[in-house]
Design a protein around this nucleic acid. Structure first.
Lengths: 148, 148
DNA sequence: CAAAGTAGTTTCAAATCAAGACCGGTTTGA
DNA sequence: TCAAACCGGTCTTGATTTGAAACTACTTTG
């Protein structure tokens, strides 16, 4: 991953987020975690990532408070990587990537996995940014206000 | 950037998206584009990225159909990089990163920029994944269905 | 017409990555 | 109970990517 800039002085939340987790592996690890993966070796198997990189990223994600290490739930003496509440709140980020990919990266005869609500079995609705009164806002109807 | 995997055989939209644009620079370029940046030199100034990297990423983003090159709108003979509709639909991804960052990467005395609706001047509502009937769904209330 | 700006490409050293060997504990199963 | 397989890493090495700066050619400004 590219060298991170000085995260303390960065006032754009997008940049600060990307400096922290804006690399392919971090987000794929989080995606797998939402699929229920918790063990080092299962992340490694599913992602096909080099062990050394995986170890490095998991260390980073734990330091960042996105995962925490907990004793294995199956009674063995191994450990598990579990999403913290902070990590769970990355769900909208993963869903946003998923929905964009579904809409723009797959042709009609190009099968892809679908994220469904367990209750209804139906796909989620498409997420859209909305103003305080609930109306969908297009990008050009918004503006970034810099701090003081 | 890490070598991309075979994007054709990847059936997870999250992975396909991240393989394409899951690097820090691509998404920061798109963020700046939403702030109205269109010119090579302005991207370069604002991001502080090496020119060679910027040229490479813009080429990739144009190839991917996220930006298109159009004649400069100021009458000069230069060109501009403009988001396509496909690129504009990355807005929810950027907003998701922003909202996560705002909530989890800044302390109370730690100023950050805010994305507001131009109409009301108020911040956007927090995006949340919802089921078909409009209820907010937590990560564990969803499941990924693999293609056939 | 000179100086400054635009939009890159090229070069090269340094950082990062991927693949695989290695390693010390743990668990499984014959 | 003891060997084999599994777990969760680290270390080494060669390949790839990055960042910084110099260089280029064209355009605009003053």
């Amino acid at each position: 991953m590219a060298k991170r800039r000085d995260n303390e002085t960065e006032t754009c939340p997008v940049a600060r987020s990307l400096d922290l987790i804006g690399d392919r592996w971090c987000l794929l690890i989080v995606r797998d975690a939402f699929d229920g993966v918790r063990r080092f070796s299962e992340f490694q198997r599913r992602l096909g990532v080099a062990r050394s990189i995986l170890a490095d990223r998991l260390r980073l994600l734990v330091e960042a408070g996105i995962f925490e290490i907990s004793p294995a739930s199956d009674g063995t003496s191994y450990q598990e990587y579990v999403l913290t509440p902070k990590g769970e709140r990355l769900f909208p980020v993963i869903v946003a990537f998923r929905q964009w990919g579904e809409q723009h990266l797959f042709g009609p005869r190009d099968a892809h996995s679908v994220l469904v609500d367990k209750g209804s079995g139906k796909p989620l609705t498409v997420m859209e940014p909305r103003s305080a009164d609930g109306k969908v806002v297009r990008p050009w109807e918004t503006t970034v206000k810099l701090p003081r």
